[in-house]
């Protein structure tokens, strides 16, 4: 029989407690149990980055972490970052530059980009390409994504947000 564990996770700032099957991946827990469907599963192999989440402030693959491993930790999703207004400038830049098409990779791309903007304020265009190389986008060919991130990086430097 499956083993269940009482698990408490602070999701987008709100603690939630559920009995969770040990084998449930974090991204499946968020999608199925909490209805936070902004994080997507695509390769379920840790390769494509569509399920990228932030756990205790660091991005990771939601398909490579079990929900029970997040017990007592803080998890942020695209819905949380959007509502908090944390990446409003990044989302606006993506919109303006059409840096997304089908949008399936986009939440993961934005989560990764926000970490880059936070941790590597001096990143060059080549370094942006390197940092984003773990997020698969099948639609855009990446140039618009890189352009958007670069534009926000420059804007945030200018306005002192970095």
């Amino acid at each position: 029989m499956e083993e269940f564990f009482e698990t408490t996770i602070t999701v987008n700032g709100t603690p939630v407690t559920r009995r969770v099957a040990a084998r449930t991946h974090l991204v499946d827990f968020l999608r199925e149990e909490l209805g936070l469907t902004g994080s997507h599963t695509a390769c379920e192999h840790g390769v494509c980055g569509a399920c990228t989440l932030r756990v205790d402030g660091q991005i990771l693959r939601g398909c490579l972490m079990l929900a029970v491993q997040a017990n007592g930790r803080k998890v942020d999703t695209i819905e949380g970052l959007s509502d908090a207004g944390e990446i409003r400038d990044l989302q606006a830049a993506f919109h303006e530059r059409n840096a997304l098409q089908c949008g399936f990779c986009t939440p993961g791309v934005l989560m990764t980009a926000q970490e880059l903007l936070r941790d590597r304020p001096e990143a060059t265009r080549d370094e942006i390409r390197e940092f984003m190389s773990g997020n698969l986008c099948r639609c855009t060919g990446y140039q618009a994504i890189i352009d958007s991130i670069e534009a926000v990086l420059i804007a945030r430097r200018r306005t002192g947000r970095l």
């Binding site: 936070l36 469907t37 997507h40 959007s82 997304l100 949008g103 986009t106």
Partner: peptide, 18 residues
């Protein structure tokens, strides 16, 4: 810019598996 991209940028699209 296309208006319908906004929901996708907030993770508020709706794909079949959602």
């Amino acid at each position: 810019p296309r208006a319908n991209a906004k929901r996708l940028l907030e993770g508020r699209g709706c794909y079949v598996d959602d």
